[in-house]
Amino acid sequence: MSAADPTIAPASAAANAPSGRHAFGRGLRPWLLLLPVLLFVIGLFVLPLLGILRLSVVGPNGLTLEAYADFFSDPFYLRVLGRTLITALIVTFFCLLLGYPIAYVAARYAGTLGTALLLIVTMSFWTSFLARTYAWMVILGSQGLVANVARVFGWEPPQMLFTGLAANIGMIHILLPFMVLSLFAVMQRIDPNLLRASTGLGATPFQTFRRVFLPLSVPGMINGCALVYIVCLGFYVTPELLGGPKDQMIARLIGSQIEQLLDWQEAATMAAVLLVVTLTIFAVYDYFFGLDRLWRS
């Protein structure tokens, strides 16, 4: 059905057909096409998700918000939550700081340099982040690159691996391509004639950048930051492998709950909190900019 069906409609309905969409569109036909995906997503994604949310509010004596009360009254959990939010902020900030020059040069100077930079960024985007996490273990380990270089200069480095710093560096490295690609998508569309016009009106290169390019690239910055921040909030693998035991983020806490099967309700509550925080950011973004813009990058 799904294969042959769509062609029935384009005659009448195509998005770019001159006369617009057809009255058939209000019938059953779109829903027939949507049925598989709706069944699939609702049955195998939404349902499991609701299952875990339900778990967080059902106690031995029916519905209860006890788990949430526990969560928000326990300073340990609050510290973890706060650390998660702040860590994500730090990582996002550094991604923006490091990502902007790359995206800027790639967008402004097409040619060998721009192409090479883009190639590097796309390659790291697609390279397994486990591979990259592993690389940082090699660099920061006690027998690793940095330590051995330091020893050459007769300096014994402190422990770097399994610290919050290592986790942050790893996350920045892994999320940087997201940021660069978001920025680049927007910068690429900035009309170079605007910059020429600005120079023609007497602006110095820095003024042109500051007054024309930078404001026009703000949408890319917003997209990139939103993306990086959201991914970072729920990041599990890299902090788990690079980070130390003291500075856990909420995702690691959930992970260790699953591994040790300690308390379903507790784990579900933490998951619910993380979910709400994430969705709140999405909602804020949607309110100001519309979610569709985020997907485009």
């Binding site: 995906v37 709706l38 997503v41 609702i42 994604f45 939404v46 499991p48 998700l49 299952g51 875990i52 778990l55 959201i230 909030l233 729920g234 599990y236 995702a251 959930i254 992970g255 709950q257 699953i258 379903w264 784990a267 579900a268 998951a271 993380l274 979910l275 994430t278 969705l279 999405f282 979610l291 997907w295």
Partner: peptide, 19 residues
């Protein structure tokens, strides 16, 4: 609804699917 899987953190879904 279709975009949902892109919005929920993986670790949350890991727990959900585990259960």
């Amino acid at each position: 609804l279709i975009m949902m899987p892109l919005m929920v953190p993986f670790i949350v879904m890991a727990l959900a699917y585990f259960f």
